[in-house]
Design a protein around this nucleic acid. Structure first.
Length: 588
RNA sequence: GGGCCCGUAGCUCAGUUGGAUAGAGCAGCAGCCUUCUAAGCUGCUGGUCGCAGGUUCGAAUCCUGCCGGGCUCGCCA
């Protein structure tokens, strides 16, 4: 039940009625008309800009049109008051019963309250993490992981048909470096003294277990073979080992992908067809690939720049700034070429809506990828790229230094192990994706109001606690949702209660808007605000005993308030579920 | 130099895709606190929304130009 949709429909009906009567021209464009919550309770419950937006096309002025609309809307028995305000807003005040109806609906729907209607099409693909399989994930990867996962959950909850995908970058030169690094650890595992890890190889200890696996499986057999022979084999074992580790870390975060897509599988190796070549030929056949020269980068002198003819994709035809190369000078595919083939694969698997979650350092890559998606899908597919900014890791306000060089940088896993999955998940989306994020290891485990994770979870636990207490006070009271939703809710008239009722009514709209904007942080902010309002109401009961949820001497009001608390709890749990954060029964 | 992102209270950030008097938390100030088990509550102070133009009934939001910060710039992924 979405209040704003309902009244939007009624507003449209009123406009049609006016059109039929000839008071308005027919066929007005209603695209910009919105029904939204008011910021100020003095403005009533709902507001619409209809009169201001439509006045010009209707050949009248906003206030005259508003007068007509108000007259029409006032006939609605659920609208207690409709009035014109400011430059032509129409403010609607609803009968209080409308909000209790919403509350009942929320209780009846339970955790499905706010869920959008199922939309099988378009199929949506969310690609996130896609960390290189060359080492453990760091905190920055964690942000992308949580963001992508929460976004996917949000879209799914809004009704979309979502697939979660991970692109394994297992085809570039860096996995060969990984293989060489692992080979050293293999020799080490055989008892050889390998000394310091040479510059340019991965020094981390995490490759030791790969070395041991290799030693166990092959004994000394690989040791004296030429690199060309052992590299493919070692590479596979190393990549598998790294992916196991990454999957493990993701599992610790509660992040699970449905599809792991290998970059290597796009190339003519291991018996695969050459999907990259196929993609390039497809584009070439439509004159979107050509042999040509590129101007050198402007303003920046580059000694190594060599003007030569190369194979280029006409990215400029789709809004990019320059055409982009598909082949390196040694004839192999560029990363971009592979990525085009990959996104073409997504399209061929039925995904017309693609969302990629990348680190902010890949911002310069967005335009060309969007151009490629347009080209490869014949403009039938769309790509939205969400860039996640850096995470600054702090402890009590002081930056935790991460020296990647030595190999002993702070891993995502260490952070999860220290502060817990819920804290990491909530904090990672408690900020807009394109703003840098401060993550304080000390603060996120604090049990105080300053810690948003605790604050929101505590609100949920407090709801549960109230129920435990109610059962003690009224052992015979039936507290199942079915009974609660029948309670007489008309006593919920305190300002603080009404405010929360309005929040609950706004939840479906928040979900819908957050999903449309691909912004899961809005859900995190919403639950935080709801938690805040709820704690505040709870504290109000200190001075005003009649506002307490459990009232030993009044079964009727207790039942109504428990219905209210049940709905609050349910919406908190729902929002936390989107975030992937646990909704605990108690905080001990 | 080109492109992209950011700039909102002393600090950290929201701002419902163009709406009404720009909000919240922290910090600061003033009270309250033997709490429906609970790690606090209430109120106040605080703003040239980086700057300057433009678009329109209306701009923090859209357009242009500057200023400042970050990222990025063929054969890394």
């Amino acid at each position: 039940m979405n209040l704003f949709e309902i009244y939007s429909a009624r507003l449209h009906a009123a406009l049609s009625t006016l059109a039929e009567r000839g008071a308005l021209p027919a066929g007005l464009n209603l695209g910009r008309v919105v029904v939204e919550p008011t910021k100020d309770p003095a403005h009533g419950d709902l507001a619409t800009n209809a009169a201001m937006v439509l006045a010009k096309d209707a050949g009248t002025n906003p206030r005259a049109l508003a007068t007509l609309l108000v007259e029409e809307l006032s006939k609605d028995p659920e609208i207690a008051k409709a009035e014109i305000a400011g430059p032509g807003f129409i403010n609607l005040t609803l009968q209080p019963a409308v909000f209790t109806t919403v509350l009942k609906a929320a209780i009846d729907a339970g955790l499905n309250y706010g869920r959008g209607p199922a939309k099988p099409e378009p199929k949506v693909n969310v690609e996130y993490v896609s960390a290189n399989p060359t080492g453990p994930m760091h905190v920055g990867h964690g942000r992308g992981a949580v963001f992508g996962d929460a976004l996917a959950s949000l879209l799914a909850f809004a009704g979309h048909n979502v697939t979660r995908e991970y692109y394994i970058n297992d085809a570039g030169a860096q996995v060969d470096v990984l293989a060489r690094s692992a080979f050293l650890r293999y020799r080490e595992a055989l008892g050889e003294d390998i000394g310091a890890i040479p510059e340019g190889l991965y020094p981390g200890d995490y490759l030791k277990s790969v070395g041991e696996t290799l030693a166990k499986a092959h004994g000394p057999a690989l040791k004296d073979k030429p690199e060309a022979e052992w590299l493919p084999l070692v590479r596979k074992v190393a990549i598998d080992g790294m992916m196991d580790m990454i999957r493990d870390d993701l599992a610790a975060l509660g992040v699970v992908h449905e599809v792991f897509f290998s970059e290597r599988s796009l190339q003519a190796v291991d018996g695969n067809k050459d999907a990259v070549r196929e993609t390039i030929e497809d584009l070439r056949s439509r004159d979107l690939v050509y042999e040509g020269r590129l101007p050198p980068p402007k303003g920046q002198k580059d000694e190594d720049w060599e003007d030569r003819e190369q194979t280029l994709f006409r990215a400029t035809q789709f809004g990019d700034d320059v055409d982009r190369p598909l082949l390196k000078s040694d004839g192999s595919y560029t990363y971009f070429a592979n990525d085009i083939a990959y996104h073409r694969s997504k399209f061929m698997r039925g995904f017309t809506e693609m969302i990629d979650v990348w680190g902010a350092d890949h911002g310069g890559y967005v335009k060309r990828m969007q151009a490629a998606v347009k080209a490869v899908t014949n403009e039938k597919g769309a790509l939205d790229v969400k860039l996640c900014q850096l995470v600054r890791l702090l402890r009590n306000g002081e930056q935790v230094r991460m020296s990647k060089r030595s190999g002993d940088f702070v891993t995502l896993r260490e952070v999860i192990d220290e502060v817990g999955r819920d804290a990491v998940r909530f904090m990672m989306i408690f900020r807009k994706n394109d703003a840098t994020l401060d993550f304080d290891l000390a603060k996120v485990v604090e049990q105080s109001k300053d810690n948003p994770v605790f604050y929101v979870q505590y609100a949920h636990a407090r709801c549960a606690s109230i129920f435990r207490q109610a059962r003690e006070a009224f052992p015979d009271l039936d507290l199942t949702p079915v009974t609660l939703s029948q309670a007489d809710l008309s006593i919920l008239t305190d300002e603080a209660e009404v405010g929360i009722l309005k929040s609950i009514a706004a939840y479906p709209r928040v979900i819908e808007a957050a999903a449309a904007a691909h912004e899961p942080h809005r859900v995190a902010f919403f639950v935080h605000e709801l938690a805040s309002a709820f704690h505040s109401l709870w504290n109000k009961g200190k001075d005003s005993p009649q506002l307490r949820f459990v009232n030993q001497t009044d079964r009727k009001s207790t039942l109504a308030r428990l219905a209210f608390v049940h709905a609050v709890r349910s919406v908190l749990a729902s929002g936390l579920a989107v975030a992937g954060v646990a909704a605990p029964e108690e905080m001990r």
